[in-house]
Simulated scan of single mutants.
Amino acid sequence: MGQASPKLSPTIAFEDFERVDIRVGTIVSAEAFPEARKPAYKLAIDFGPTFGVKRSSAQVTRHYTTDQLVGRRVAAVVNFKPRQIGPFMSEVLCLGFPDDEGEVVLVTVDRAAPNGGKLF
């Protein structure tokens, strides 16, 4: 069975949610990341003219090939501090949910929304 949490997280104020900056972006490149401890890809994601292209390491190799990722519109947290993952600096966190086996299924956008648009 999946890795769903058996209980809800503690209640937070709306202001806490507002501090997490989640934006939509388009994956412009995806390549293998053989140096990662767990199978992953290196992604470049375009968040529009205000934020530009940001990089992310994503453990999504089970459900996606690099060709399937390019052009996909995803949601990502853009205001975490960059994180060093091996020789790669990950600047944003792509969001996803676990499938029944705990593998990541990306959060995607199903209608036109400009790159850099903020989740509310």
Rank of each mutant, 00 (worst) to 15 (best):
residue 2 G to R: 05
residue 2 G to C: 02
residue 5 S to K: 01
residue 6 P to V: 03
residue 6 P to Y: 04
residue 7 K to F: 12
residue 8 L to H: 14
residue 8 L to G: 07
residue 11 T to E: 11
residue 13 A to G: 12
residue 14 F to Q: 11
residue 14 F to V: 13
residue 15 E to W: 04
residue 16 D to V: 08
residue 16 D to C: 11
residue 16 D to F: 01
residue 16 D to W: 00
residue 17 F to Y: 14
residue 18 E to K: 07
residue 18 E to G: 06
residue 21 D to L: 00
residue 23 R to D: 15
residue 24 V to A: 13
residue 24 V to H: 12
residue 26 T to M: 02
residue 27 I to Y: 02
residue 28 V to M: 01
residue 28 V to N: 00
residue 29 S to W: 09
residue 29 S to G: 13
residue 33 F to Q: 00
residue 34 P to E: 04
residue 35 E to M: 06
residue 35 E to S: 05
residue 36 A to G: 03
residue 37 R to L: 14
residue 37 R to N: 11
residue 37 R to M: 11
residue 38 K to V: 14
residue 38 K to W: 04
residue 38 K to N: 13
residue 39 P to Y: 12
residue 39 P to K: 14
residue 41 Y to L: 10
residue 43 L to F: 04
residue 44 A to P: 06
residue 45 I to E: 01
residue 46 D to Q: 02
residue 46 D to C: 00
residue 47 F to Y: 06
residue 49 P to M: 07
residue 49 P to V: 08
residue 50 T to Y: 03
residue 52 G to M: 06
residue 53 V to R: 00
residue 53 V to M: 00
residue 55 R to G: 03
residue 56 S to L: 03
residue 56 S to R: 04
residue 57 S to F: 02
residue 59 Q to E: 14
residue 60 V to L: 10
residue 60 V to K: 00
residue 61 T to A: 07
residue 62 R to E: 09
residue 63 H to Y: 03
residue 63 H to I: 01
residue 65 T to Y: 15
residue 66 T to N: 05
residue 67 D to V: 09
residue 67 D to G: 09
residue 69 L to W: 01
residue 70 V to L: 02
residue 71 G to N: 10
residue 71 G to L: 11
residue 72 R to E: 05
residue 73 R to W: 09
residue 74 V to K: 03
residue 74 V to S: 00
residue 77 V to N: 01
residue 78 V to S: 07
residue 79 N to G: 13
residue 82 P to G: 13
residue 83 R to L: 02
residue 84 Q to A: 10
residue 86 G to L: 07
residue 91 E to Q: 08
residue 92 V to D: 05
residue 93 L to V: 14
residue 94 C to T: 14
residue 94 C to G: 02
residue 95 L to Y: 12
residue 96 G to W: 09
residue 96 G to D: 08
residue 97 F to E: 12
residue 101 E to T: 14
residue 104 V to D: 08
residue 106 L to T: 06
residue 107 V to G: 13
residue 108 T to M: 06
residue 109 V to N: 00
residue 110 D to Q: 10
residue 111 R to N: 10
residue 111 R to Q: 11
residue 112 A to C: 10
residue 112 A to R: 11
residue 113 A to Y: 12
residue 114 P to W: 03
residue 117 G to K: 15
residue 117 G to V: 08
residue 118 K to L: 14
residue 118 K to S: 14
residue 119 L to P: 03
residue 119 L to D: 07
